[in-house]
Design a protein around this nucleic acid. Structure first.
Lengths: 149, 149
DNA sequence: TTAAGTGCAAAAACTTTGCATATTT
DNA sequence: AAATATGCAAAGTTTTTGCACTTAA
């Protein structure tokens, strides 16, 4: 799990810097309840409400950077834009089941999937950052509904 | 695997229609080599080149519809927009390994993942449409490179 | 001190929508 | 004939970028 100190060290390794904005963003995600995820816009609004605003462009730049470092996971759920959450190892690591009709999103755990993903990455010589199984399906309630699509 | 006939039947079931545009789009994806995927824009250009143009809005509407029917898979690769491919069962079913630095995308197969996904969906009473494991990682060549990010 | 990062505003990229017309059933 | 689908143009959403200024190291 990332701490401000380990983030700082890893940034310095690459010639980058620890800014108050990066520290704030890391803390927000670390304190987010498991299973919650934020979009760039969500984070922007949240920070404004907290009286600690960060510009949207900085948010976008840092969300991308932290995903590419493996600190955050970039989730493509059903809302039409990306969501982010902290990237945790087993046993906190999880996957998503999404209803394509009502967009209901459920988490589920399955540690053998992470193991398989790690094995696949290793076999190809890749350095693993994240591994997520996304299931698109129709939930029980939408199966019963007679609404179109 | 979908044929024009089965597509027609399934559309009719829901009060929808088989149009030449839908038939064309289905055929394009059926004839696409395994592992190739198209964005809405790719498909638009391809159809224009073939002298059989379809408007972008119709393309967007039908890609979404066919994904929600389980005919196509919606892929979130590294390009910043969705790509689509035909949704095939095992043993053609596959997953994606993506380098977050150079965006190189590799397919891999693992039928037990599809089985696990199916089991998860079933356990929750969901009707499965698609199930994809996406691995974000850094490829061997980018690990060696000294370029930033 | 100097290279990296931020904020702002503008632009770019992608996707959806309203509406008149055309088409499937 | 009636309802769905298409094409066009316009609008909406999300994300990126250029640049002057600021700041971490």
């Amino acid at each position: 799990m990332y701490t401000v100190t380990s983030l700082k060290a890893e940034l310095h390794e690459r010639g980058w810097r620890l800014t108050p904005q990066r520290e704030t963003i890391l803390q927000i995600f670390q304190n987010l309840p498991t299973g919650e995820h934020l979009s760039a816009e969500d984070l922007h609004v949240l920070l404004q409400q907290d009286g600690d605003p960060i510009s949207l462009s900085t948010i976008y730049r840092n969300l991308k950077m932290m995903s590419r470092m493996g600190i955050l996971r970039e989730l493509e759920l059903a809302e039409g834009h990306k969501h982010y959450e902290i990237n945790q190892p087993a046993p906190y690591h999880h996957h998503h089941l999404i209803c394509v009709r009502c967009n209901k999103t459920t988490e589920f755990k399955n540690d053998s999937i992470l193991k398989m993903g790690a094995k696949t990455a290793q076999k190809e010589g890749y350095h693993l950052l994240d591994c997520q199984l996304t299931i698109h399906a129709i939930c029980p309630s939408c199966q019963r509904s007679i609404l179109p699509m």
